[in-house]
Design a protein around this nucleic acid. Structure first.
Lengths: 288, 288
DNA sequence: GTTCCGCATGAATCGATAG
DNA sequence: ACTATCGATTCATGCGGAA
């Protein structure tokens, strides 16, 4: 097992995982290639074969995950022929037959989604983050993701655009005012199952980079320091970088050599930034 | 048909709809009783029988809906035994077999969701609003739900740069001047598929009232004035009130006499408010 | 050092045109 | 007839350079 810790491994993730022992990983967080996308990079899994393609992967994850571990799957179905594809729904049902518990569906509500205009559809600004478990009693450290109420209110007010103001006029004033009053007494609150994050804008040289905050949030929620986080479709390495920054062990797998190299490079870059922070006497926490 | 227009009908909605003619309704928007919920009011449909219970209803809706019409289903699966139930996923798959197109899944992101704290779960702050159609080409009036543009636009459009000119020229040889004019005058943008609305605070004497803005938004998006909106589980009458306020015809059905009375009462109340507004020389639009 | 402003870009989708 | 490619459309964010 030790040979996988804090490594990026190039290979087919189902085959790589097959060599790993049972019950050895605390969290799997990944964003696999979506159906029929990225034809030039991952080979383009078609929607009607997606489930059969993914099940061997989820089967290996089920085996190597600890009994108290969690599997977070970030995914969204494409539009095909004017209709939402059903492969994600079918995948959930099949994974349950495989032995998984479908514990929860978190929503990533994207602040800045892709632009576009169509006659029969609005812009898609959300994705699914499906939570699967082996067992009803799994590890969850809710206090690690509590939101300081002060900064919440501050950023909320700072970002209050004209849009927000006008949208807010419609709501019931008395009820909301009462709620705010309640919140003022607390220093931190628990979040909900909706994550409201911007998409990553900077160039990652990878076609599907999710924001670091997304894996980071789940890593804090479902693991403690020195535990192990696996991403079988590590891509540009975002989740590995997040795990490392948070003092967790990472294991990254990708079938594309180029992406493995990119992950290594991003890991080095983040390590370099950490060192610079130490030079200036900052903690990495403050720097982020 | 005329006997149903602007009426609240007490009865089993599948039976009531069975008497209605084909292709007579422009929009169906409803929030049916969720599985195993509201045991004391709707008799408590259990999760494992939910699909078989709902399919006759969706079958009748498929028949009475116009070919260009839309069916919006507001629903969220319950947690049963620590796991999300799968009846909504199964329902979508079965409704497709029935002939429906699953066009889109809108998310209602609740601003102020129900409070609570559990050891293995955060508060649930979103619900599905599933869009189904009979036909790929359905009626959609996107301009009716445009929202104010973000405040970023003010500074962004203050002075257009050279690159803006170049970018647009490369994509479109002919009509650049027209484009600039469009952007400069633009004060509203199209929304996304996430609705960020507060939950209803006021007491509706109904166990599952959704905010009026939710049906209101879909009514504006999918119908024009004098068209017909049906809610087969009308409950406290929210969607009927919304339709009436927007100058649409409503048809409300509920199996519970008490809820039919409540709907009638809420419709009267909204009519009364409208009259009061006229007395003060306000339009109903301004009052809302 | 701080704020401001310009700019590229991001898991997109549809309809028309071409092969 | 059916698939593949291409252009047009569009919004908000974080970054880097400048004031």
């Amino acid at each position: 097992m030790q040979e996988y810790i804090n490594k990026i491994i190039c290979g087919n993730c189902a085959e790589v995982m097959a060599k790993m022992p049972d019950n050895c990983v605390d969290l799997v967080v990944t964003s696999p290639p979506y159906a029929d996308n990225r034809k030039n990079t991952y080979g383009g899994v078609s929607p009607d074969r997606y489930v059969e393609w993914f099940l061997p992967v989820s089967g290996e994850i089920l085996r190597i995950l600890k009994n108290t571990g969690t599997f977070i799957l970030n995914i969204k179905e494409k539009v095909v022929g004017g209709e939402r594809s059903c492969y994600v729904l079918e995948l959930i049902l099949e994974m349950r037959k495989q032995g998984w518990l479908w514990t929860e569906e978190f929503i990533w509500h994207k602040k800045n989604c892709f632009p576009g205009k169509w006659s029969n559809r609005f812009r898609d600004s959300w994705e699914r983050c499906l939570q699967f478990n082996k067992n009803k009693s799994f590890a969850m450290y809710q206090d690690a993701v509590k939101v300081p109420i002060g900064s919440w209110a501050k950023s909320r007010l700072k970002n209050l655009s004209d849009t927000d103001l006008i949208r807010d006029e419609t709501k019931n004033n008395s009820g909301f005012g009462k709620k705010v009053a309640n919140w003022l007494n607390k220093e931190t609150v628990y979040p909900t199952n909706v994550l409201y994050l911007p998409t990553e804008c900077s160039n990652k040289n990878h076609s599907a980079a999710f924001p670091e905050e997304l894996p980071s949030w789940f890593i804090k929620l479902f693991t403690r320091e020195n535990e192990t986080v696996l991403d079988p479709f590590v891509g540009s390495g975002t989740s590995a970088v997040a795990a490392k920054k948070l003092g967790r062990n990472y294991i990254g797998v990708d079938i594309i050599r180029e992406y493995c190299d990119l992950s290594e490079s991003n890991l080095k870059k983040s390590e370099h930034e950490r060192e610079q922070c130490h030079q200036y006497g900052l903690t990495t926490q403050e720097a982020n």
